[in-house]
C-alpha cells in the first residue's frame, strides 16, 4: 500500500480538491484524485499513492539523470581500460542485475 505507482495522466475533470484524473498505469486505467498536484496536465506523469497523485514526475530531470549516468559510463570506459575490461567481463559472463 505504501508503494507509489507511476502513471500517465490521460484525462482531467473537476476543480480544486475535487479535481480528478484518469491515469494510465501501463494499460490499467484508474480514476485518481489530482487535488495535490494542481499544476498537472494531460500527458504528464505522476506517482500515485492509494488513489492520490502525490508527485508530478519531472521529465526534464529524468532525462538529465539518465544522460548523466550514460555519459559517465562512456567517458569512464573510454578513459579507464580497467573499467572497460571489467564491464566487458561482466557482459561476457552474461549476468545482469
Amino acid at each position: 500500500m505504501c508503494l507509489g505507482i507511476p502513471g500517465k495522466v490521460i484525462e482531467i475533470s473537476g476543480e480544486g480538491f475535487m479535481r480528478t484524473g484518469k491515469i494510465d498505469f501501463d494499460g490499467i486505467v484508474k480514476e485518481v484524485s489530482l487535488a495535490y498536484v494542481p499544476e498537472i496536465e494531460v500527458g504528464d506523469y505522476a506517482i500515485v499513492h492509494v488513489g492520490f497523485a502525490i508527485t508530478q514526475l519531472d521529465e526534464e530531470s529524468a532525462q538529465e539523470t539518465l544522460a548523466l549516468l550514460r555519459r559517465l559510463d562512456v567517458v569512464d570506459e573510454e578513459l579507464d581500460p580497467e573499467v572497460a575490461l571489467a564491464a566487458e567481463r561482466r557482459r561476457a559472463g552474461g549476468d545482469t542485475p
Binding site: 549516468l69 550514460r70 559517465l72 559510463d73 569512464d76 570506459e77 573499467v83 564491464a87 557482459r91 545482469t96
Partner: peptide, 11 residues
C-alpha cells in the same frame, strides 16, 4: 538499463 547498472557497480 543493466549496462549502466553494471558500470555503476564498478564505480
Amino acid at each position: 538499463d543493466p549496462e549502466v547498472a553494471l558500470r555503476l557497480i564498478d564505480e
